[in-house]
Simulated assay, not measured.
Amino acid sequence: MSVSDALTVEELRSLLLSWQLSLRADRKSPQTVKSYAEGVTQYLAYAEAGSRDPLARDTLRGFVTSILDSGREASTARARQLAVRRFTAWLDDEDELGGQPDPFVSVKAPKLDTKVIEPLTDEQLKALLKACQSPPGADRSIKLRHQRDEAILRLMLETGMRAGEVVALEVNDVDLAAGMATVRRGKGGKGRVVPFGPNTGQAIDRYLRTRRGHLLAATSADLWLGDRGKRFSYDALHKTLGIRAEAAGIVGFHPHRMRHTAAHRWLAAGGSEGGLMAVAGWTRPDMLMRYTKAQAASRAAEEAKRLGLGEL
């Protein structure tokens, strides 16, 4: 019996829930679980639409090609393919492939273009923060929303924290007196302590004082709360910061640009690479280079001026 005879698209869909449970048991982040599930769901829909064998390499290649042909980024195609490959690896580990080997075990990932992501300028950052100013006489819910967004932006800008790390913060993770925020579980399950300055601390304090009047204030440990008694999710952060960026006139904004911007500003101010890696939660120097390469030449020029090595 072939693998395609053993597992249909519908059977694979039924196993998707079990895989998600396994990912949660492995303590994968909610964002990772969601991304993987979306990738596999889209792949199975592609296979079903064309009556294709979902466990054939040609089907996976066609799926990746369809993503690239639609104009999506190569990184998106790579992420979707990775989700499918992780899924079939799990099927193999759980002996759900009927004794057949994992069909995608040696499939290569799409090659990524080297993209240069420009950090936000000081003028853009000021415009972002200005867009968070609450209008005079605003009610508590509107005031909370503006103060929350300003606090989030300042925290991301100063520390370079990932969006998922920011969303996961709880009230007790922030020590305003010490100017420290504790990331309980960063990428790869690693935690760290992140310092922040007086301006960020003041913004968080203002938000926390307004937060006391929220419907969930007494029952939720989450630092950030949403509107009208709702929790504040990862998707909500993307949406609300996108609204602030639009109001600030920033085109092509994505919350991840805050991480690139924070890294550039740290080095431009004379901060050490080792310090930046510790604060940002990077363990490999190549990640540092990836995030800071856009303005490497301009930082080098400023450093050369300060050194004045031509003054003999």
Score class of each variant (00 low, 15 high):
S2I: 05
S2L: 10
S4D: 07
S14V: 11
S14H: 09
L16I: 05
L17W: 08
S18M: 05
S22D: 15
A25T: 13
A25H: 12
K28W: 08
P30E: 10
T32W: 11
V33K: 01
V33S: 04
Y36T: 11
A37Y: 08
A37T: 15
E38F: 05
G39T: 07
G39F: 07
Q42M: 06
Q42T: 04
Y43P: 12
L44G: 14
A45G: 01
Y46N: 08
A47V: 11
E48G: 02
A56V: 05
R57K: 09
R57G: 14
D58H: 07
T59P: 13
V64S: 10
T65I: 04
I67A: 12
L68P: 00
L68N: 01
S75I: 09
T76Y: 06
A77M: 05
R78E: 03
R78K: 15
R80P: 00
L82F: 02
A83Q: 04
R86I: 07
R86P: 07
D93M: 12
E96Y: 09
L97A: 06
S106D: 14
S106M: 12
P110H: 15
P110F: 15
L112E: 15
L112Q: 15
V116A: 09
V116W: 10
I117A: 03
E118M: 13
P119R: 07
P119M: 03
L120D: 00
L120E: 00
Q124K: 09
A127P: 00
L128I: 13
K130W: 01
Q133D: 14
I142A: 13
R145S: 15
D149Q: 06
D149S: 12
A151D: 04
A151C: 07
I152D: 00
L153N: 05
L153Y: 09
M156A: 15
T159K: 13
T159M: 12
M161E: 05
G164R: 05
V171H: 07
V174E: 03
D175H: 06
A177C: 03
M180R: 13
A181W: 01
A181R: 01
T182G: 01
R185G: 00
K187P: 00
K187H: 07
V194P: 08
P195E: 13
P198H: 09
T200V: 03
I204E: 08
R206A: 14
L208S: 05
R209E: 15
T210N: 08
R212A: 10
R212C: 04
R212V: 13
A221Q: 13
A221E: 14
D222W: 03
L225V: 06
G226P: 11
G226E: 02
G229I: 01
K230W: 04
R231E: 11
S233K: 06
R244H: 09
G249H: 09
I250K: 11
I250L: 10
I250W: 09
H256N: 11
M258S: 11
R259P: 12
H260C: 09
A262H: 07
H264A: 05
H264R: 10
H264D: 10
A269H: 07
G270W: 12
M277N: 02
V279W: 06
A280C: 11
A280G: 13
M287R: 02
M287G: 06
L288G: 08
L288H: 04
T292K: 02
A296P: 02
A296D: 03
A297G: 01
S298W: 05
A300H: 07
A301G: 00
E302N: 03
K305C: 03
K305Q: 14
L307F: 12
G308Q: 04
G308Y: 03
